[in-house]
Amino acid sequence: MSDKPDAEALFEWSDEMASLQLYKAIQNTHQQIDDKEVSHNLSFRDLHLATLMHGLEEADQLTEVIFAARTKLGRDTDHIRPNRAEALRLLMRIGLEEVAPETVEVAVEANKEYAIDKVEEF
Rank of each mutant, 00 (worst) to 15 (best):
A9G: 05
L10C: 05
F11A: 06
E12P: 02
W13T: 15
E16N: 10
L22A: 05
Y23I: 04
T29S: 08
Q31K: 10
Q32M: 04
Q32D: 07
I33Q: 03
I33K: 01
D35R: 05
D35V: 00
S39W: 03
H40A: 09
S43T: 13
F44Y: 08
L47I: 09
H48V: 13
H48Y: 15
L49A: 14
A50P: 14
A50D: 13
T51I: 12
L52V: 11
L52A: 09
M53K: 10
G55K: 00
A59E: 07
Q61T: 00
Q61I: 00
V65P: 04
A68C: 11
A69C: 01
K72V: 04
L73A: 04
L73D: 00
P82Q: 03
N83Q: 06
A85F: 06
A85L: 08
A85W: 03
L88F: 00
R89C: 03
L91R: 00
L91I: 00
M92S: 12
R93A: 05
R93Y: 02
I94N: 01
G95P: 07
E97G: 15
E102H: 14
E102T: 14
V104R: 03
E105P: 09
V108N: 12
E109K: 14
A110S: 07
A110R: 00
K112H: 15
K112S: 12
